[in-house]
Write a protein that binds this DNA or RNA. Sequence first.
DNA 1: GTCTGGCTGTATCATTGATCGCATGACAGA
DNA 2: TCTGTCATGCGATCAATGATACAGCCAGAC
Lengths: 231, 231
Amino acid sequence: MTETEPLRAAMIEAAERQLASSSDHEIATRAVCEAVGVSQPVLYRLFGDKRGLLDAVADHGYERYAALKAAQERTGDPVADLHAGWDGHMAFAQANPALYQLMFTPRPWSHSTARDRVTDLLAAALTRCAAAGALKLEPRTAARLILAANIGTALDHIARPALFADPALSHRMRDAVFSHVLTEPPARQDADPLRAAALRLRAQLQLGGTEALEPVETALLQRWLERIARP
Amino acid sequence: MTETEPLRAAMIEAAERQLASSSDHEIATRAVCEAVGVSQPVLYRLFGDKRGLLDAVADHGYERYAALKAAQERTGDPVADLHAGWDGHMAFAQANPALYQLMFTPRPWSHSTARDRVTDLLAAALTRCAAAGALKLEPRTAARLILAANIGTALDHIARPALFADPALSHRMRDAVFSHVLTEPPARQDADPLRAAALRLRAQLQLGGTEALEPVETALLQRWLERIARP
DNA sequence: GTCTGGCTGTATCATTGATCGCATGACAGA
DNA sequence: TCTGTCATGCGATCAATGATACAGCCAGAC
């Protein structure tokens, strides 16, 4: 489609560049026109409006977003894909903050369908999870939920002056929402559940001890648990 | 404080009114000045900038937000207060969409502290939860998490043309995040985590055994675990 | 009574979104 | 090849808006 209307595509790309480099996340129609060497009326003929240009930029952003998704997903495990999708979303947001806000922040006019199409993409990924029996909710409901959380977290990351890009927060949110949406992972959870159980009991013993065993017994138990837990 | 500078307050309120009624979530400095019967230079002397005016509007929005919070919280159960706080946040967003976006959507300049102060408010409410032993995370971390989810959900509600104001989505998100942040409220699941850990390890041993211990040791371990697990 | 300082309004500039009418060039048909 | 038609791009311009320079005015001090 960049072939059918090279001028249109050039203007969209110029607008996106200016949006990314502008300090206030704004663009000037004049500057966009000058960047591609045409005058303002062409812009208004092609896009009708500044809004129309911004909508086109947002949709173009969706194209890039979708391409990214298409390139990186489908490892075979749909749940793992979903996790990667969340992280990819966050990376996209941090790489293109202005474009991201244009796409995912509500604008009262905005005929852009970027957000809805991203929801569809996510719903499709979730349907694959549902086919694997890993989804507790209806795919579209789950998609809205996940996307809302993803956007909220991404905006939080954008708002902070990147003091410390805290991936822990993103992963916390991801785990919180996913555990509400997905079924418990089949059982594999721990490659070695015995070792996990031993570690857990050891921690509990160190924390509070027990009156069910004699001190000597407890001490020996501790040694055994250590041996079980050793790699 | 509306007493010390009535003119300033009047301009902020006029700006907020125009922001709420404008179709594109924008305001014109001229219109604000005319609304209060002064001319432009006063605005620039009071706020320095259009940005300054918007920041002041956002901060004023925080005042209203904080007043709402102060009025409705503190029922005695801090966790119940937290739930009410989430719903109150959503209600505030739906009642003042434009102001809400001004307060909680990242703007590259913006010296407004509204968002940080809301985080502080939330962290205080969470500290009360922590005092009741109901919090799994550090209050500030939990606050960022909850606020990000709350904002994401609110923006989703604003973005939708209010087709059907789906409170289910908001409550799903609330439950998902809260269950990740708060300890299990009812039944406390395991009054005795040591017993739970022992039960778990016993089950694992019966399932697969271990090569880390001699058979005799394993047998004795089993007996001990039984003793620990006994009510 | 006069002077000083702060405050306000008028007039104005610069930028930007948006539009009007004309020129230019391509193309179809005679 | 000539001519009429149409689409397309452009210079010029308008309207709205953010922002400012400068002069006038009023209160209070001396």
